[in-house]
Design a protein around this nucleic acid. Structure first.
Length: 218
DNA sequence: CACCAGGCAAGTA
DNA sequence: TACTTGCATGGT
């Protein structure tokens, strides 16, 4: 019944926004906190990430220069509640080393480039994959880069809107080729999809009363 | 007890 | 290229 994907995506967005309202993402106070959160939440429940962030906050370690200065062993101890803490410590330190070597430690200047260039540079850093890179571009730098995550995949594949075998970049292009690259819209759309995923689209789906059920009537 | 969470990189064939 | 496995805590 729909003429194109743009219309479908706009209708999905409208249904979720009407149901849940603005989510106000990303849950962080500063751009560098977004970087930390994006790495810490890799395959991890946000509740555990929040504990790790709180530990860092209590120790005044939420700034770029502070994280650069803290010993890896101390950092690992503080982020322990987020899981995979040894790997994540290396990833955070890798990011710091990159900005130190390539931007003389100027984190703001690192973020000050166009979306695609920044995304490519982020992907060159060990420990930063496509979802983490897109999250940093969209929520830390405030540049348009659509974020795909496990919930985006589940929601769109289970509704039959994309194939189950779709790759990350393919699913991302499903959005970016149909939508204008507007930062606030991309930010809110991803946040709404994660919110919907939390409520209705986990491994054991609880689809009752999901706002997207109306789309099965097509 | 088993299974899951807002991934990613390294290893195998 | 296309799987598989390790990483690890805390909630359900």
């Amino acid at each position: 019944m729909r003429s194109n994907r743009t219309e479908l995506l706009q209708d999905i967005y409208a249904a979720l926004y009407d149901a849940f309202g603005p989510r106000g993402w990303w849950p962080a106070k500063t751009p560098f906190e977004v970087v930390l959160g994006a790495i810490l939440t890799q395959n991890t429940a946000w509740k555990n990430v929040a504990r790790a962030i709180e530990n860092l906050r209590e120790n005044n370690l939420l700034g770029f220069s502070e994280i650069c200065a803290v010993p890896a062993s101390a950092l690992a101890l503080l982020i322990r509640p987020s899981g995979f803490y040894n790997q994540k410590t290396k990833k955070i330190k890798n990011f710091c080393a990159h900005v130190t070597e390539h931007r003389e430690g100027d984190f703001d200047r690192f973020l000050d480039q166009d979306a695609d260039t920044l995304r490519t540079e982020l992907l060159s850093i060990r420990g930063i994959g496509p979802e983490t890179a897109d999250s940093i571009v969209l929520y830390a730098a405030g540049k348009p880069s659509f974020v795909v995550d496990a919930y985006t995949y589940r929601i769109f594949s289970r509704h039959g809107w994309v194939d189950e075998s779709v790759a990350y970049d393919e699913l991302r292009e499903y959005f970016t080729t149909a939508l204008d690259p507007e930062v606030a819209f991309f930010q809110e759309f991803h946040a709404l999809l994660v919110h919907t995923g939390h409520l209705f689209c986990r491994k054991k789906p609880l689809c009752d009363s999901c706002p997207l059920n109306v789309f099965f009537a097509d």
